[in-house]
C-alpha cells in the first residue's frame, strides 16, 4: 500500500469525509508534509472503492455540485490495521538500528 492510500484510509478511519476534507486531514496527519493533489486523491479513492476498502457514506448537493462522503469498510479497517502493524515494525527496527549506530565510537552525533 502506497503512502497516499495509507494516509487516505487513516483520514477516513475517524469519520466519513468528503474529498476536500480528506486532503486537509491528510495534510494535518502528515504534519504538513503531504498535500494530496486532486488527481491523485480521486485515482486512489477509485482504487480503494474498487478494492472494497472504502465506500460512499452519503451524498449531498453543495453549491449545485455533488459532494460525496466516503467511509472505511470492515475490509478497509483490517487492511489499515495490518499496514499500521507492518509500518510500526519497520519503524521500530529502524529506530533500534539507529540507536545502536549512534552508540558506536566515531558515529555519534556531532
Amino acid at each position: 500500500m502506497g503512502e497516499p492510500a495509507f494516509l487516505i484510509l487513516t483520514a477516513l478511519a475517524g469519520e466519513p469525509k468528503h474529498g476536500y476534507a480528506v486532503i486537509e486531514d491528510v495534510l494535518d496527519i502528515s504534519g504538513g508534509q503531504v498535500r494530496l493533489h486532486t488527481g491523485t486523491l480521486y485515482s486512489v479513492l477509485d482504487r480503494l472503492r474498487e478494492g472494497g476498502l472504502i465506500e460512499v457514506d452519503r451524498e449531498e448537493i453543495v453549491a449545485s455540485r455533488l459532494r460525496r462522503y466516503y467511509r472505511l469498510t470492515g475490509v478497509g479497517q483490517e487492511r489499515l490495521a495490518a499496514e499500521t502493524v507492518r509500518l510500526r515494525r519497520n519503524a521500530d527496527a529502524a529506530a533500534a538500528r539507529l540507536s545502536g549506530f549512534a552508540l558506536r565510537p566515531g558515529t555519534g552525533a556531532a
Binding site: G19, Y20, I23, Y42, L66, R67, R68
Partner: peptide, 17 residues
C-alpha cells in the same frame, strides 16, 4: 467513465482549494 463518476466532485475540490 472516470469523469462521469468523479468530475463534479473533483471540480468542487479543485475550486475549494
Amino acid at each position: 467513465a472516470h469523469r462521469r463518476e468523479y468530475e463534479d466532485e473533483m471540480m468542487g475540490v479543485l475550486l475549494a482549494g
